[in-house]
Write a protein that binds this DNA or RNA. Structure first.
Lengths: 137, 137
DNA sequence: ATGGGCCTTCCAGCTACTGTAAGGTCAAGG
DNA sequence: CCTTGACCTTACAGTAGCTGGAAGGCCCAT
């Protein structure tokens, strides 16, 4: 199977597959003409990677997950640990974004959004530059 | 004021300030020795940028916000529009992460996390590779 | 032989910095 | 006067994870 078909089958762009080979995530064999030859197993690996990436795991985490996937003697504990770490990272990120969102939503709401120059949003951004105008207390 | 003091005053690393100059976000004057000379106004701009970046605005959005900040004849509508777009992007991102989080949390919970190899997390990741084993329905 | 669609490699670019190297400047101390 | 050390300068490389494009090879149909 050539890279185009592997791309279609796995859902990953051919470019991405070449990149994954370059960084050692997969190692398809080669035909006589130099074309990559993907076995069914390779396509499974690619789909595994696609799914793991879609769940937000980093490339290095995917590498580790792949190793566990291929290791019949793995402990599910190791997989769970990776997933838990990732989950915590996502939770932190959500909390950050939520805080951002709340601040921003407040600013948006306070802004008239008309053709006059007065703007609480710009005032807020500038307030960091003029701490005399108090935001603590 | 040299770059070190501007960094302290604005909360941005000196490296970042040089970068901002390179991409044309600020243009401090220069002393005879080639050192950047930051006026109070420059430090205000830097703090403005720092705050806007902390709120998650992209560099290009910061450039636009800065232009509005400096334009006395701006319409607050333009600022609000930028902020609303950003807010929507954050909302979408939060929704994405939340969906991810839910999926991942389900997987984590279903995994025993012991020293046996059986692992619903890996099963899920691999399921994309073996659609015969059904996930729809 | 020629056209088109696939494949190959290599290099550049994206965001927003960050690190490092090699060197210039300046004030203090001996 | 010289050194030390903290500051400053530029330029280049690297980060994550691709993505686009150039230049060229392979293969099949006409």
């Amino acid at each position: 199977m050539n890279i185009g078909d592997a791309a279609t089958a796995s859902g990953l762009p051919a470019k991405t597959i070449r990149y994954y080979e370059e960084i050692g995530l997969i190692l398809p064999s080669r035909d006589g003409n130099g074309y990559r030859a993907f076995a069914t197993r390779d396509v499974h690996r690619l789909a595994f990677l696609a799914r793991a990436r879609a769940l937000g795991f980093s490339i290095e985490e995917c590498r580790a997950l792949m190793a566990l996937y291929e290791d019949e003697d793995r402990a599910s504990e190791d997989v769970k640990h990776l997933a838990e770490q990732h989950l915590q990272r996502i939770d932190r990120r959500i909390a950050e974004l939520q805080a951002l969102r709340d601040t921003l939503a407040g600013l948006v709401q306070s802004c008239a959004g008309d053709n006059r120059p007065d703007c609480p949003i710009l005032d807020d951004l500038a307030s960091a530059a003029r701490p005399a105008q108090a935001e603590s207390g």
